[in-house]
Design a protein around this nucleic acid. Structure first.
Lengths: 205, 205, 205, 205
DNA sequence: TAATAAACGAGACGGTACGTCATGTCTTTTT
DNA sequence: AAAAAGACATGACGTACCGTCTCGTTTATTA
């Protein structure tokens, strides 16, 4: 166990500062007032700017660290017996995470930051987007093992559709995704795509 | 009828300035050097800042006007005989529009701008996103008229999937969408989706 | 007689505009709010900027024209029998003209404008300052004719002292000059200054 | 005793920046090219605008600080045996200080600035004008002690006349004051003024 | 009575400087 | 060391005026 890095010299990094920075960053962006700036974070966290710069390359990275933890903690990929039921469960968990306005604002802000900083985009992808995809693919490969996976919609496209719809909605409107959307999406992804025109879809808003 | 605005008094707006501002804005953001600023646009267009502020509320709106024109001009929704063929054609045209790096950069930048300015987001939605959706829905309603539209994927979800995939890809990676993706997507959207015909889709919110 | 400029073609200069510009300029500067700008004058006078630029080179000149008229109208140099009485009368008239805060503000503003525009300073000197001096020198030369003029204080120095004190007070404080000051100043300028002619001037550096 | 400010925390004010700002301001205004602007000062001093705004409320205050130092350093009020000799000495020193065109330009510019900013005028008065008057009054009170002071010209009027003539000349013309003017002025101020000793001077406000 | 011409209001234009804000770096003192 | 405090150079922001330049309209003089 122990061993743990050879115990560096000097004062140790303040866990208190770290946490108050992460919280300040999230709170500021969640509140929606536009003062999401390094100076604003420092002021709200009661911390010097230098302390932020010492540990994170950009304010986007602060946000990223803050959000990645939340997502990992709140979305499971447990087995519910069938591909479709797993999917519905996954989607509902995800939609629930996105219910608070502040969370959506934070994610939108992070995605926006990443657009004019390629390095941050990379870290965002690896530290967040790909982890969400990996979670989804646990479900997919379990379905594959079960022989549950339909032939039409496979591979990366599944992730592109699921997260595509989620992000597109989040970025372009304030309209939330809900349980009904989870059912329709799961249905689409599990249907074999082989012709029984007798079914009638429900009317869409 | 006529109507003909009553011919206002003073000097008229300079069409030359207007165009050079739109082009300068697009060029700057397309070049990727991060100097996409009002001052940069003004300098490159040979125009005073005030002239920009007089006609557009934010630099995002300049970009929006510049991009909306391009998209309208380059994507048609012509009839190719079947829903699937129409879709493939639409998707390929769209993917082609997005081929140049500069166009993608401009769209990503605009989407990013819109994230911290709700008013701009509104204008972006109405002036761009909804117009793209409307184009797609011409194809959809033609399919409906033909009796070509499968029961599973209908209504707003079609747009959410199509544009969701496109935007998600564009915002999170540099990987282009191509002809193969067009076929798979079109196939998905046209398949009846009835592996388990007993299921009934729940109503969508 | 007549002669009268050969009567140019076209519309004649609008006396109404001219007056409302002069008044607007004076009022703005007298009110003390800092909006003493060409645009402000135009707006308040209900006139276009071009009309101001057509007839005056700078806003200082507008003010100059406005003030010169007032001074000429209100200060006479009538004969009151002695040099000293003429002086006292002249000073009191001048102090009275300067009593309204707005007049002082306008003069101060004009003097200030003239400091960073040599051409305007020239016009200010000729159109205002020298005219005030000339008025004073009517009194002085009348005294000379009478044999009333003391030997000590003569020539330009008289003007420098009188207007020096007036302007210095006006520019550096809000303290008004009054009747008592007129008496002391007149006394100083009329005293022979010959109590002890044996005095020797000190060596000059 | 000591008192010694408790040694504040962060980085200390840069004396180098302070001095180059003061010099840049003076040089710019002395050169007469009209680019006496905050941006110009910053550029010439190799300093950011923010650093100027941090320490001085207006560019006039920069100039004031620059000029006050010079005047304090160059004008003494040493004892030359008599009131008149002291005065002549004081005047000649002052005239000498004003000999360089740049110094006059700077003072005129400062006086002009102060005219549309009452707060600056206050600081100008206390930080400059009143200090010059105080210097002069050292001479006057020494004369009083000696019994040297003539009855006619006393109190504030002395300062008003001396500085009135100086400023009026400086603001309204380019004609320099010289040794001859010093003699005449000193003579005027030291003459007993008793052509008609029966008259009594009125008290000055 | 038509043509010509100057002056007018309105208002857009290219500019310059303003004063403010946020960035990322650096320096000093404290823990 | 690491932290808080805070000064620094940089650079963009959005605003205010500057002086110039069209426009369409009005008023006068000349043909």
């Amino acid at each position: 166990m122990s061993s743990e890095e050879p115990r560096r010299r000097g004062r140790r990094r303040s866990e208190e500062s770290r946490l108050s920075i992460l919280n300040a960053a999230f709170d500021l962006v969640a509140d929606g007032g536009q003062e999401f700036t390094i100076e604003g974070i420092a002021a709200r966290a009661g911390v010097s700017k230098q302390t932020i710069y010492r540990w994170w390359p950009t304010k986007g990275d602060v946000l990223l660290e803050s959000l990645a933890a939340r997502a990992d903690a709140q979305i499971s990929t447990s087995d519910h017996g069938s591909y479709e039921r797993d999917l519905v469960h996954f989607l509902n968990q995800t939609f629930k995470l996105l219910r608070p306005r502040g969370v959506r604002r934070a994610l939108r802000s992070l995605m926006a930051e990443a657009q004019h900083n390629p390095d941050l985009l990379l870290r965002f992808r690896e530290g967040f987007l790909e982890r969400r995809r990996a979670a989804l693919f646990q479900i997919v490969s379990r379905a594959e093992d079960r022989g549950d996976l339909p032939p039409t919609v496979r591979g990366e496209l599944i992730g592109d559709i699921v997260f595509g719809v989620i992000w597109y909605r989040m970025l372009s409107t304030e309209r939330l995704l809900g349980a009904a959307d989870a059912l329709v999406l799961a249905d689409l992804l599990t249907s074999a795509g082989d012709a029984d025109p007798s079914r009638v879809a429900a009317p869409v808003t």
